Amino acid sequence: MKKHLTNEKGMALLTVILMFTLFTAIGLMIFTSILNNMKQINKTEGNIQSTDIAEMGAIYFKTKINDTIALQNNAGAETINDYFTTINNQLNVIETKKPISKDDVYFEIKTIGDISKYSLPPTATIKLLPNNMTTYLNKDARIIGILLNSKGIKKNETRSLSIHLKYLYKLDTNGNYAIAHPGSITSPIKCGDPSQISGIQCLYTTPQSFEGDLQNIKDSTLYFEDDFNVSGTIVNVQGGKIHVEGDFVASEINNFQDITEDKVSVPSELEVEGDAQIGIINNTFNDFKLFVGGDLTVNQIGNSVRDSTFIVLGTATIKSGLENINGDCKLCAYNGVTGYVNDPTDKIYVPEDPDFNTQCSLYGGPTKYILQTTPDEMVEYH
């Protein structure tokens, strides 16, 4: 009987030991899991915080960059190469590292690394600045780009994001458009009629498309606050002024000449702030001026173009009749002429010509390059 009781006590003790061991193991597993979860939570929180710090850095550096560009735009530069050199010197003043607190919390600029993924053309000029920013000048796309990594650090946790800012460069046209806005005209007489417009000012606030020909514009101003599209020909313009704030398309412009008022000649003018596509230009006379703020594409320039000036701030593409720009005609193309081979005897001027500024500034050409203030932006987290 004693032996039986002893065996039962031994089994009970063994059961207690096994249960204790089991619960201890389970407890250790739970404790380890909680500890790991806490570590992961802390790591995740640290990662989130370092990401927030990197984003804070991105906002800070972009603000500094945009402020720098705004200041440089006030001064501008005579050439885009001069602008690129000057803006690089100014960007390099931006500090590389910015502390947030004393506890190893800060953001800083790091180099972008492999720049090949940005597919820049071989002709692009690339600069690595001492403060780790990378800049480039891409004349093919008329872009100055800025690349950097914003790295956020909170103690041992780090996160980076790359920033790619692309700024279009352009010529400052302030003061170069000669045709004044006609002001607040609610319902100008005959402005909706594309024929026989004489002695009036017309204001169009929405995009306009005219079917057929637009003809017989005499001593009048047509001002378009948006795009202007003519399916036919703009013909017989005497002392007429046409200004388009958007893009302009016409099959042909023909017979643009001056009008004499009180023994004073008033020439005809066509100004386009955007891009212009014209099928044929012919019969322009008497100090006619075409001013295009973007790119100009012309299928043909006729042989009856006389005493006319064409100013193009973008690229000029003349598919036929380029040889007709001679004598008392002149073409100033600030971003070059497609397919053009420089000839010192013609009247076609591009920035590479030694007398480009002298010849073109006489006709109201712009004097400085600036960057558009709103860039295209790409952000990638690492």
Rank of each mutant, 00 (worst) to 15 (best):
L35T: 06
Y223P: 09
M56W: 09
T317A: 04
R306I: 12
A12S: 03
E352P: 08
N81P: 01
I318A: 09
I53N: 11
Y177I: 05
Q215M: 12
D227N: 10
N138T: 05
N156V: 12
I197Y: 07
M133Y: 13
C202L: 03
Q238H: 12
Y363P: 08
N357W: 08
N254D: 14
D258N: 13
A77P: 01
D213L: 07
D262C: 00
E377M: 10
P130W: 04
I301H: 01
A75R: 13
N282D: 14
A54V: 11
K170Q: 06
Y118F: 15
D140K: 04
N176G: 04
T15H: 05
P375R: 11
T374N: 13
K319P: 11
I41K: 09
K97N: 08
T373I: 14
A25D: 11
T338A: 04
V272C: 14
I112A: 11
R306P: 07
T85F: 00
E352K: 09
S195W: 10
V264N: 13
L147G: 02
G76I: 02
Y223Q: 08
G57V: 00
T32I: 11
L203D: 08
E8D: 14
D307S: 11
K98W: 03
A178N: 11
L35G: 04
F256Y: 15
L148H: 13
P354H: 02
T317L: 04
G336N: 04
Q49E: 11
T111D: 03
G175V: 04
P99N: 14
K218V: 13
E269V: 05
K170F: 07
D258C: 06
E78W: 00
K64E: 13
E352N: 05
Y204S: 08
L22C: 15
S33F: 10
G113L: 02
L161I: 10
V266Y: 10
I189D: 07
Q300E: 09
P344S: 04
I59A: 06
I242C: 10
Q300I: 06
Q201A: 12
S150K: 07
K170I: 09
T51A: 06
S101F: 10
I48S: 11
N299C: 01
I197M: 15
E157C: 01
M133V: 12
N255R: 03
L290E: 15
E323G: 07
N156R: 15
L168H: 07
G294D: 03
K110Q: 08
T358V: 14
F310E: 11
D193P: 00
Y381G: 05
L13I: 12
T367Y: 10
E78F: 00
D140L: 03
D140R: 03
I311Y: 03
G152D: 00
Y349D: 05
M11L: 15
F288S: 05
G212I: 04
S265D: 09
Q49N: 12
G239P: 02
I34C: 15
G46F: 01
F248L: 09
D343W: 04
Y60H: 12
G46D: 10
T6D: 00
F61M: 02
T297Q: 00
T135M: 10
S268K: 07
Q359E: 15
F224A: 06
L28S: 15
V237W: 03
L331C: 15
L203C: 03
D262K: 09
V350F: 04
M19T: 10
M11D: 08
I30M: 14
A77F: 00
D307Y: 07
L270P: 06
L14K: 00
E269N: 12
A25T: 15
T85E: 01
D346M: 13
